[in-house]
Each structure stands twice: as C-alpha cells, then as structure tokens.
Amino acid sequence: MSKTAEKGSGTSARPRLTVLSGPSGVGKSSVLSELRGLGEDVYYSVSVTTRAPRPGEVDGQHYHFVDRAEFDRMVAAGELLEHAEYAGNCYGTPRRPVEAALERGTPAILEIELQGARQVRRAMPEAQLVMLMPPTWEVLVTRLTGRGTEDPAVVAHRLKVAEQELAAAEEFDAVLVNSDVRTVARELLTLVVGSPTERVSSEP
C-alpha cells in the first residue's frame, strides 16, 4: 500500500507544481483522469508538440500543436520549463501558464517522463516530483505486452526504458503504487493540494 504524507497542522502552504512521472503503461493518464473527476481546483498543464494532431485531439485541450520553427523559438526564448524529442517529434511544457496558476493560488500538475522531470527540478527546484509505479514488474510487463499488436523490438525498448525510469525512484519526493486507480488518485490529490511533504515512499 502506498504511504502518503499527512497535511500540515493548519499552516497554509504556497501552491506548487507537482510533476507526475512513471514508465509507459503504468497508468498515468488514467490516474489523472480520475483526479480530474474529484473536482478540486487544480491546473493541468497542456504540453506543446510539433507532431500532427491525432483523430479526436483538440488544440489547446490535448496539446498545443505548433510547427518546428515555433517550437525552436519557444525554446530559445526560455518559454518552456522542459522539452525533449521523441520519435522525431518535439514536446515541451509552457512555463507561463504554470507560473500564472501558481501565482493565483492554484496548484498545478504536469505529466511527463523522467528526462522532463529532471529538467523541471532544475528549472523549478520547489516543484514536487511524484513517481507512479506498478504493483509489480510483472504487471507492467503484462500491460506493455498484453495487446500483442506491437513489434517485439518496440516492446523490448519500452521495457528497457521502464527499468531505467523505475531505478530513478530515489530522485523523487514521493512514490505511489498504482494498485487501484481510485485510491492512488486520492493519494495524489493529497500531495497536490496539501502542504509541502516530507519524502514518502511505497513498496511495490
């Protein structure tokens, strides 16, 4: 079972950015969807990307879609908290909307991978980094291989990356185990809206 920090004794803390990270297949999107349903006033960061929209995706809701020239301009101007390139496409987190949310007293949350989380820690040291882990390694392997529709080499690469990401758990301020989406979403909410926490951990 995950251990979450207890809130402070009545002291109101300044809202801060929470970064949710974890390997592919661990359920980050599902947890954030459940978190949205809890109805708290939280700002969910929308990433910018150079890839083309997929069917059903809405600009400004799922991503901010831009071309490479605009993305490079944003990087050069320091407008991104973090940025990275995956499979030939660029992704990044706009800095100003996050800062604006925090300035108006709204906690913010961002879902990114390990590389981006490390960049955010450097750019915004007060950010809270949360690692989402699977109940067991076997569960994660099943999630990544269960469909059986992807190239084995692609799956093998994802598993190798997942191993590296899970090995970095000690860099995070909190570690939550996704054994149950509803439960872990409430644990995450406590971290997002609560007072600054001591390091928390959990055992898969």
Rank of each mutant, 00 (worst) to 15 (best):
L132R: 07
V42K: 02
E99H: 03
S201K: 10
D67S: 09
A13R: 08
V154P: 00
V184R: 09
G194Q: 11
G8T: 12
L176Y: 05
P23I: 10
V31E: 01
G60F: 04
L132I: 05
L81R: 06
Y63P: 02
G88S: 03
Y86P: 00
E82G: 03
T183E: 14
V155D: 00
S201R: 15
K160D: 07
H62L: 01
M1I: 05
T149F: 00
T18W: 02
V46T: 13
S47E: 15
E70W: 07
A13Y: 08
V155P: 01
L38R: 14
V192K: 09
P204T: 07
L110W: 11
A76I: 06
N178V: 00
V48C: 10
A153D: 13
M124P: 04
G146M: 01
V19P: 10
G37P: 00
V130D: 11
T49F: 05
K7E: 09
P97T: 10
R54K: 14
V155K: 00
K28N: 02
T136F: 05
V155A: 01
R143M: 05
A13I: 04
V58F: 01
D59A: 15
N178S: 00
E170G: 13
E113C: 00
A185H: 00
T18Q: 02
V154S: 10
S29K: 06
L114E: 12
E6A: 15
R186N: 05
E79P: 01
G22F: 06
S201C: 12
A156T: 13
R199C: 01
V161D: 03
R199L: 06
V177T: 14
K7G: 12
V26A: 08
S9M: 12
E70F: 07
D41L: 06
P107D: 06
V66D: 05
P107T: 06
E171A: 13
P196F: 02
G148A: 09
A52N: 10
Y43A: 10
R143V: 04
T190S: 15
I109R: 01
S30T: 12
G148S: 08
E165K: 03
A76P: 07
E165C: 03
S47D: 07
R143D: 03
V120R: 01
K7C: 02
G10H: 12
T50S: 06
T183V: 11
D180G: 08
L114P: 00
L102H: 03
R73D: 11
R143C: 04
L140H: 09
K160L: 06
Q164F: 00
P204Q: 08
P107K: 07
E70H: 14
G92M: 09
P53N: 06
E171R: 12
E171G: 13
W137H: 10
S30H: 04
R182N: 10
Y43R: 09
E34R: 15
A87Y: 09
E79D: 15
E34V: 01
L110T: 12
E99T: 04
H64T: 14
P23S: 15
E99L: 15
G88Q: 02
G56D: 04
F172V: 00
P152L: 03
A69S: 08
R14D: 10
F71R: 10
A168V: 05
M74K: 12
V120D: 03
E138H: 11
A77S: 06
A185M: 00
